[in-house]
């Protein structure tokens, strides 16, 4: 087999997919008929797969739920105590989906520039110029944590840049499942960059589940190899400062991001750029540049607006309560505060 023609063929497939908007099978299921590029075979295939999964997952789930509900006197399929929380969830999800659809239809949205994400290419470029490797740490938690998934999504973009520049990328992981996912992400990124030979699975390896054992190994590697750029994106605990300080000691440009509020100050103090909380989750969408994903970021902003309105409303009610209390009922009991409803339903999740 001619290796080059094989590579070109793969590149062609990728280009075609990118041009078509890179739609997923699930989208084709949801929006059947709207997309001219969705071939019928694919839709038929996904329908078949969905039917199979319905049979294997959903029906057993419902029957199991039915069994457990049957053991009680009355079947309660919806926890009415969580109504307000459910409505809030639906409202936020709907806003995000509507914004995605609007972005897909061509409505332009402004997303503010994030310094940490803009610096990623600079960091990769710096490593290339210096001829030194790049370190990417996707946190120390398993793939079931959303922070880890967000980290892996960014890994994909970083790996693509690194593959284009042919700069070695080291990804030590503290969970075996994360290692497998990281390998998939890097391999796909190398392929997307048109450099399938760039992928070297030895560079993405498992160290240990143990927090400080992992830190010792990664810091040791940093002191020996002196990477020019370090990315710490995922879930971190006490090891955050060890890693960031080691990176600082070797003079690497460092970009960190986590949703752990207790670790953010350490990253801010020791790293060049820090993605604060939500910026980590926005990173992948921002770097992809796809309109649909950018629309999701806008949906998030509307969620923030709703949070601000709720906060102002709650603060006003609380102030009103403290200025003029509601007094007592006919039975002589203190009437609940006006802001009680928000505390009980919205803040406590119903």
């Amino acid at each position: 087999m001619d290796f080059h023609s094989d590579t070109n063929a793969k590149k062609e497939i990728i280009t075609t997919r990118v041009k078509s908007g890179g739609q997923s099978a699930f989208e084709s299921l949801v929006f059947v008929g709207k997309r001219p590029w969705d071939c019928r075979e694919r839709v038929r295939f996904t329908k078949k797969t969905l039917a199979m999964l319905l049979f294997l997952v959903v029906f057993p789930a419902l029957s199991l739920a039915d069994e457990s509900a049957g053991s009680t006197k009355q079947r309660v399929w919806f926890d009415t105590g969580k109504t307000s929380f459910a409505l809030l969830t639906i409202a936020i999800c709907a806003t995000v989906i509507i914004c995605t659809e609007l972005a897909r239809r061509g409505k332009p949205f402004y997303v503010r520039p994030i310094a940490g994400l803009l610096a990623m290419e600079e960091a990769v470029g710096r490593a290339t110029e210096m001829g030194k490797p790049i370190l990417f740490v996707p946190g120390i938690e398993d793939i079931k944590e959303i922070d880890t998934v967000a980290g892996l999504m960014v890994l994909s973009s970083v790996a693509k840049m690194a593959a284009e520049y042919d700069t070695p990328l080291e990804v030590p992981t503290s969970r075996a499942l994360v290692m497998t996912a990281a390998r998939e992400a890097v391999q796909a990124a190398a392929l997307a960059a048109g450099r399938p030979d760039y992928y070297n699975e030895d560079r993405i390896h498992y160290i240990t589940d143990e927090q400080f054992g992992y830190v010792a190994s990664v810091c040791g590697w940093m002191y020996r190899e002196k990477p020019a750029a370090c990315f710490f994106l995922g879930k971190f605990f006490a090891e955050s400062l060890f890693l960031a300080e080691a990176g600082n000691a070797v003079g690497a440009i460092q970009i960190a991001g986590t949703a752990e509020t207790t670790q953010l100050p350490f990253f801010v103090a020791a790293c060049d750029y820090t993605l604060l909380g939500e910026e980590l989750f926005a990173a992948s969408a921002y770097l992809s540049g796809e309109p649909a994903q950018m629309g999701m970021l806008k949906g998030q902003d509307f969620g923030k607006l709703a949070a601000i309105v709720l906060l102002l409303f709650g603060c006003s009610l609380a102030t009103w309560d403290s200025i003029s209390p509601r007094g007592k009922s006919e039975e002589g009991q203190n009437l609940p505060r006006r802001s009680q409803w928000i505390t009980d339903t919205v803040l406590k999740g119903g």
């Binding site: 793969k10 994909s156 998939e184 949703a259 509020t261 604060l276 999701m296 998030q300 923030k304």
Partner: peptide, 29 residues
């Protein structure tokens, strides 16, 4: 920060659940 994180988690989860972003699985390749 936590409010922002919660909204970010919702958006990221939706991206994953709707299959919009599959880079964590190696993308479309």
């Amino acid at each position: 920060i936590m409010i922002g994180i919660a909204l970010g988690v919702v958006a990221t989860s939706l991206r994953i659940l709707l299959g919009l972003d599959r880079s964590y699985l190696g993308g479309d390749e």
